[in-house]
């Protein structure tokens, strides 16, 4: 069915992947002190983990955003807009707050991350599926509640930080201020494992995404166990967002931008292609942006600022260009 469109899209994705490769190569090798072997090695040691973190983040946010949009059947909402990353920050702070900075969960980054992931998975699935049910997926309500939740979570988190013992706050600081210049690389290995497991466990549900975008009634008519499928996919989305937030901190609007760019470019319902497009756009924006930040602005402006500004404008454009949606 419509093989021509499928092939055109595959070609577009291939070109996009080439661009990603070029950007990644530029990021790695620009001004890398080719002449001096020791300096070159030093540059690589700094840049390779960063590049890996950016690629992993792009994968997590790109995948999660498309899946999330299809679950709630709206393309202008992303997990970050609904406060999922604020929730992660809150959980992370709450854990340190509750168990203290000397405990295993604060000292060992991987243990802390694992606890965060479990808490996040449970809380987010309960909270968000409750709100989706309650609002019957009405986008305006979902968006409104999401915005309120987002500030609620960060207010609670700030309140906790204020009353915290300074030593404990110190232990938290590195995780709270994670960004692309300050990557939480300790948990990278665990992140990759978590993401791989999620994809593996959800592979059947991911194949059902195409059908689910026809709406609840059609999906059930075609034999999909809708509610179970939504629950499982939502859990996957929250874990992906947790991974991205833990590693490089919150980046609002990135998901929105890349998911919609992918939808605009590919104009298809096939989620395999949409997710691939979104992930590739994410990689290009993050790596390209970081390249710009490091080589042109010499670290004066973090890449998340560009993404926020560009993404905010793009979000307004999306809202205004689709009247009545």
């Amino acid at each position: 069915m419509n093989h021509a469109a499928y092939r055109t899209n595959s070609r577009k994705l291939l070109i996009l992947a080439l661009f990603v490769l070029l950007t990644a190569a530029a990021y790695l090798f620009a001004e890398a002190h080719w002449g001096n072997e020791r300096l070159f090695r030093y540059a690589m040691r700094l840049r390779i983990p960063k590049l890996a973190a950016m690629l992993i983040t792009a994968f997590a946010i790109g995948g999660a955003s498309i899946v999330f949009q299809s679950i709630i059947q709206n393309t202008i909402v992303t997990p970050c807009l609904l406060g999922m990353n604020s929730l992660y920050m809150l959980i992370h702070t709450a854990v340190v707050f509750a168990v203290g900075s000397s405990s295993l969960f604060a000292v060992n980054a991987n243990a802390a991350f694992a606890v965060d992931l479990i808490l996040m998975g449970v809380t987010a699935t309960v909270v968000y599926s409750y709100f989706f049910r309650k609002t019957r997926h009405n986008v305006l309500y979902v968006l409104l509640i999401g915005t309120v939740l987002s500030s609620l979570f960060s207010s609670i988190q700030t309140a906790m930080v204020r009353v915290m013992d300074p030593n404990e706050y110190d232990a938290l600081l590195s995780a709270l201020t994670a960004s692309f210049s300050n990557i939480n690389s300790e948990i990278m290995g665990l992140s990759v494992v978590v993401m791989a497991v999620v994809v593996l466990v959800l592979r059947r549900e991911l194949k059902l995404l195409d059908v689910m975008t026809l709406g609840k009634n059609q999906a059930i008519n075609l034999g999909v166990d809708y509610d179970r499928c939504i629950r499982r996919l939502l859990l996957g989305v929250t874990l992906f967002i947790a991974v991205a937030t833990a590693m490089v901190g919150p980046i609002s609007f990135l998901g929105l931008v890349i998911a919609n760019l992918s939808r605009q470019l590919l104009k298809t319902f096939r989620h395999g292609q949409l997710i691939a497009g979104s992930v590739l756009f994410g990689m290009m924006i993050l790596v390209g942006g970081q390249l710009l930040v490091e080589r042109v602005y010499s670290y004066t402006v973090p890449v998340s600022v560009f993404i926020m500004v560009g993404g905010g404008i793009y979000f307004l454009y999306l809202l205004l260009s689709r009247k009545g949606a």
Binding site: M1, Q73, T213, L214, G215, Q218, L222, G223, F269
Partner: peptide, 17 residues
């Protein structure tokens, strides 16, 4: 539906089961 779908692609979903 929010997604871009042609008539033929829609009808093809009937074969999903």
């Amino acid at each position: 539906t929010q997604v871009k779908l042609t008539v033929r692609e829609l009808v093809a979903f009937g074969r999903f089961p």
